[in-house]
């Protein structure tokens, strides 16, 4: 099994302004076309290896983000796309924003930008793939986990 040859993405819009979302989608379309690297955008958390989140976290979406993360199989990598997902960005002072994605999930890769450019997002995904490989190798070295604890 080598997921790094074809990592599948799941994209969720936290509370972004759409700017980063459409750039994530733009990565999948002909000009940038990440599908040529085997990357597929999926809607199903159980199929996903990389979790792309755009936008900050508020009280209502915190549990949705956590739920999606818990449903994803291990190993998994979380990529925060855009400055809002990194630390709240321009909306940091808004009353309904808790902060970046790292307030609820362990974030592996931070992609800055407002909006994050497709090149930057792709760079983040490439780094995520390398990390995914590392995590997989590390998991293989360790003894098999107790099935009750496996997420």
């Amino acid at each position: 099994m080598n997921v790094s040859k074809s990592p599948w993405l799941l994209h969720y819009d936290g509370s972004s302004c759409n700017g980063c979302d459409i750039e994530v989608l733009a990565c999948l379309t002909p000009v940038y076309d990440v599908e040529r690297f085997g990357v597929i955008n999926t809607g199903n958390p159980k199929h996903a290896d990389i979790f792309l989140i755009t936008g900050g976290i508020n009280h209502q979406n915190a549990q949705v983000v956590r739920q999606i993360y818990n449903q994803m199989p291990k190993p998994k990598v979380v990529v925060a796309v855009g400055i809002c997902a990194c630390n709240g960005g321009i909306f940091k002072e808004c009353y309904n924003i808790q902060g970046g994605v790292d307030t609820v999930l362990p974030v592996d890769i931070y992609v800055p930008g407002c909006a994050a450019r497709p090149e930057a997002i792709m760079d983040g995904v490439v780094k995520a793939v390398a990390l995914l490989d590392q995590k997989r190798k590390k998991a293989a070295e360790q003894p098999a986990p107790d099935p009750k604890e496996a997420g």
Binding site: S15, V64, N96
Partner: peptide, 11 residues
């Protein structure tokens, strides 16, 4: 609704 609410009018 309310998943994307930020409260930016208050800014």
């Amino acid at each position: 609704i309310g998943f994307v609410h930020r409260g930016l009018e208050k800014l």
